[in-house]
Write a protein that binds this DNA or RNA. Structure first.
Length: 234
DNA sequence: AAATCCGCCAACCGCAAGACT
DNA sequence: TAGTCTTGCGGTTGGCGGATT
């Protein structure tokens, strides 16, 4: 089919948009879409939607295929390695979900985005800081990422042979930004749960020139942060 | 047992960029 | 060059199911 026919087809589609189906996909729809893509390949999603007899938009078909039906889509929990990679890549590229997803084979941008919003932003809220703040980034870089590295058994590295995307990042405590302040706020629940006398309030520390996180945190601050993070999924 | 809350995830929406006419 | 359409991306929402009250 040439481009002209595709356009005519697309033009006719606008009439059908009035009664286009939305919401969850049925097994029948999945089968139709999967069979059609298997026979004709990906792309031209508006055309696919129309010719496969699916009362869906092209966008909806594309999304369903990429996020669910594609044979190489990986399902299940995000592994520790994947978590680490997401944190690492997000620190470099920000919310470039599709770019990050390129480095996690089988994972979709949607899945990574959901992971970030449900897990990482939740952690930031618990720490009462903005997810884009330097405070949170430092906490991630100097606390969570090292903790993840500790939890990844050596054997798991063997599972990632040559040619795979996974690599163990080399993190070090570089000097922090002078003048910024690290702060963690606690609730009475924390002291009740842990028995530590810190109680309500917050701990904070202003960063001086040349400081690294390791040497600026007092023992109490370190302890508090560890307690905050002790049971986290990270 | 019923009601409510909350986390997770699939799917939708709006926008921007690029291709095409 | 302007208009139209497709594709891809990131933000947001709604519903489901498990946990809690």
């Amino acid at each position: 089919m040439d481009a002209k026919m595709m356009r005519e087809s697309a033009a006719n589609q606008s009439e059908d948009d009035m009664c286009v189906r939305k919401g969850p996909w049925t097994v029948e729809e999945d089968t139709i879409l999967a069979n059609y893509v298997a026979a004709h390949g990906e792309g031209q999603w508006n055309f696919v939607a129309r010719c496969a007899g699916l009362n869906r938009t092209g966008k909806s078909c594309r999304l369903r295929w990429l996020n669910y039906l594609r044979p190489d889509v990986r399902r299940g929990n995000i592994t520790l390695q994947e978590q680490l990679l997401i944190l690492d890549l997000h620190s470099r590229w920000g919310n470039r979900w599709s770019k990050i997803a390129e480095h996690l084979p089988g994972r979709t941008d949607n899945e990574i985005k959901n992971y970030w919003r449900t897990r990482v932003i939740k952690q930031a809220k618990q720490l009462k800081c903005d997810v884009n703040s330097k405070q949170f980034r430092d906490t991630m870089q100097y606390v969570w990422i090292p903790r993840l590295l500790e939890r990844i058994p050596a054997s798991s590295e063997e599972q990632h042979g040559p040619g795979t995307e996974w690599r163990k990042p080399n993190y070090s405590c570089s000097p922090l930004c002078p003048g910024s302040e690290l702060q963690v706020t606690s609730s009475s629940d924390d002291s009740e749960r842990t028995g530590h006398p810190i109680g309500n309030g917050s701990v904070s520390q202003t960063i001086e020139q040349g400081d690294s996180l390791e040497n600026i945190w007092s023992d109490e601050n370190k302890w508090f942060l560890q307690e905050q993070l002790r049971d986290e999924v990270f």
